[in-house]
Design a protein around this nucleic acid. Sequence first.
RNA 1: CGGAGCGUAGCGCAGCCUGGUAGCGCACCACACUGGGGGUGUGGGGGUCGUGGGUUCGAAUCCCGCCGCUCCGACCA
Length: 437
Amino acid sequence: MRLTRYFLPTLKDTPREAEIVSHRLMLRAGMIQQASAGIYSWLPLGFTVMKKIEQIVREEQNRAGWNEVLMPTIQSADFWKESGRYDDYGKEMLRIKDRHDRDMLYGPTNEELITDIFRTHVRSYKELPGRLYHIQWKFRDEVRPRFGVMRGREFLMKDAYSFDIDFESARRSYNRQFVAYLRTFDRMGLKAIPMAADSGPIGGDLSHEFIILADTGESEVFCHRDWLTTDAVPATIDYEGDLQPIVDACTARYAATDEKHDPATCPVAAEDLVNTRGIEVGHIFFFGTKYSKPLGAKIALPDGTEDFVQMGSYGVGVSRLVAGIIEASHDDNGIIWPEAVAPFKVGIVNLKVGDAACDAAAESLYDGFTTAGVEVLLDDTDNRAGAKLANMDLIGLPWQVVVGPRGIATNVVEVKNRKTGEKHEMSPEQALSKLTA
RNA sequence: CGGAGCGUAGCGCAGCCUGGUAGCGCACCACACUGGGGGUGUGGGGGUCGUGGGUUCGAAUCCCGCCGCUCCGACCA
């Protein structure tokens, strides 16, 4: 992509409304534009990153054995009346009426719809486990949206659901998601810690929030010091095998949200306990027959009797992750994208557009990267050098290749690693082979 | 939903207290000089001062209503 043809409205000044760093940087880097309170338009750079995150989530859900579907954003209130939640949900649910005066709503979540899909088509235990997910926009009319897309009213979320014959089987579904989440966040360059979370009225230990540590996080969390230095993600995973040892190993190391943490019973010595803040990027839990019962989702058992199906649900805040990754990865100059979610891998800066040698070298590099299938952004604008370099740091592409008249005279460009700040001079050919390897 | 604050050019702000017909920086346009970390000069363009009403000879400024947005708290992916 050439910057002269790319819609990237970066800002030098920080818009006043933005308080936390990810919100500031997303606005400054031209990723989003606020449409109204808690509702945002996604501009090209932000949209690209969000799609990359979405794709990683999708790949890992598929790998874990879930089938992707797509349920609508607008739902009939009928299902919610059936589950009893139409009255319970309160003002967070956006209620609307269609032209026939029917009660509709913009879905804040999808248990009702997914359960309806399941009950319509699945009659026998032989078809279990049922494993479906979708990635769809949600709307929750938060009293107080804040922090940009971190707590928007409209947000993109992956929600997966499982249907099992009994608790042991449900636990296996749960473990698959647990492990899939470890992989998902790890691929995005995040250390997401699974923390024991409030499991609500169902009880039991099958509820974990996946939290990335950040000072600006909304949740207060407690974890063992070892979490700060260890990596919990196994290199290879056999989803058909027994995942319990992996989950056990992970949950053996203490980590809990404040609602679950109790100093009186905490097994970790005070000097080993870290009390910090975090951002919830995922939440998995088992809720048994909470929805299958009111909605009548029953299956035939081997002995010919019927029973309600055991359900779990598993959410990842896709749009929130865009902000979460920035919170976890930035410096004073701007964003530092982990390569897996970077909008472009390489940014070429032509310091002197119009200079024949610089233009030729920059174009040649651009063609080389493009041909090699490396996503590249070429700054071919005629801004000043300082502005271009500052802008490139701001948008945080992992690698910068700086082409200037001084270096190109001796066939040298500068390759900079955005994260470490390391700069190395080399020929354009070497830069190409280094970054396409 | 309690508390606080803010709406003046695309962005950041001043002007308001003490009413007299709107200004600064950045950005934008033109030209010149410049050119390796957000340049310099000259000349331009752009604003029903959130909105409705009131007071007044006169309202961005004073008064009342409404709308929007943000922050702190309680609640949530």
